[in-house]
Design a protein around this nucleic acid. Structure first.
Lengths: 175, 175
DNA sequence: AATAGATAATACATTTATGAAATAAAAAGT
DNA sequence: ACTTTTTATTTCATAAATGTATTATCTATT
């Protein structure tokens, strides 16, 4: 038998990837099967999260990135952030923030105003329509998001939270 | 004081997101802060993984998705899979697999052949050049991938593996 | 106060990814 | 045998994301 797959009973849709990575590890000894598997698992979970969120958001005229921007604005003082702060909060690249804000602006969900103190900065603010939209959308998306993690109990969620932050901490130390 | 952030010392780059989500939870009681946070953390870790991998892959003429395709082929019998099997192994959409294979074919790293038994199917196979390329690339990418998880010990890696699979299991049960 | 360097945001070209439709072949049902 | 349905892949139009360059403004240094 080949090396046992961790938690073999779980997550059938990951089985094909498991099988391929197991064989790669066999053929290429330096292959670090566990960390590569973790990378693929993370990628897969992230895809599932955004796919499910997008489905719930589509008929609200949003996708998961536009939604992320609006949530971050909603959770900010005066419902206002600069594009740079949106980059920091969403981890999207600045060019993507510009593009997404262009779209939200077209929909009338945000406004843009040059900062009067530092004129390099732009203040992006949720409009009344934007606040209305996000509060309409939130219940749906929150439910969908929760469903992704429905099988984890409270302790497991906290553990996952901790482990993911520890990974990020490691990533921050990478060149 | 607002509710304490889990593992507050860890992962500075997630602090802005934490702050926004905390305030959103305050303003919108139905907001499930912990699961939404988990979703953002997962998204962020996945971004970091692909960004770091892409940097290591760029001067090998690959990106992380093309690399994923080649690894899955490398770990397959006769180093051959159909596009559908590549979809199952990589979790990329079929149209994307077609596009990526077009590129790998242009580079001479794979071959495509119509299956003689079931003529709907296409057998995608790693060429000699493809095998050479992937074995050149693997050490670099494996090192980079490992570095992402450098701060986790063995038990934590197994725990993360288990939790991610449990999330996937939950996602599989979603409509 | 003039200049050099850093920061902020956007524009543009290109790459990457997707949904939906089209094409083709096999399998299932009649 | 014939029709319907399902499966497999690709095509095409579009969306989403990125890297790099550009413009503008601020900060620090001389």
């Amino acid at each position: 038998m080949t090396k046992p797959t961790p938690a073999a009973k779980l997550a059938k849709s990951f089985a094909p990837a498991d099988a391929r990575l197991a064989l790669t590890a066999k053929r290429f000894p330096a292959f670090d099967r566990e960390t590569v598997t973790l990378a693929r698992l993370t990628n897969f979970v992230a895809k599932g999260l955004s796919n499910h969120a997008n489905r719930a958001l589509k008929h609200h005229g949003l996708n998961h990135t536009g939604y992320a921007v609006m949530v971050m604005l909603f959770g900010s003082i005066d419902q206002t952030l600069t594009p740079s702060q949106l980059v920091d909060a969403t981890h999207e690249k600045s060019a993507n923030i510009t593009r997404i804000c262009d779209d939200l602006l077209r929909q009338g969900l945000i406004s843009r105003e040059v900062d009067s103190v530092d004129r390099r900065k732009v203040q992006v603010r949720l409009t009344t329509a934007g606040e209305k939209r996000i509060t309409e959308v939130l219940p749906d998306v929150v439910t969908v998001t929760r469903n992704n993690f429905a099988l984890l109990d409270t302790a497991e969620r906290l553990q996952l939270d901790y482990l993911l932050r520890k990974v990020i901490e490691g990533q921050e130390q990478m060149p």
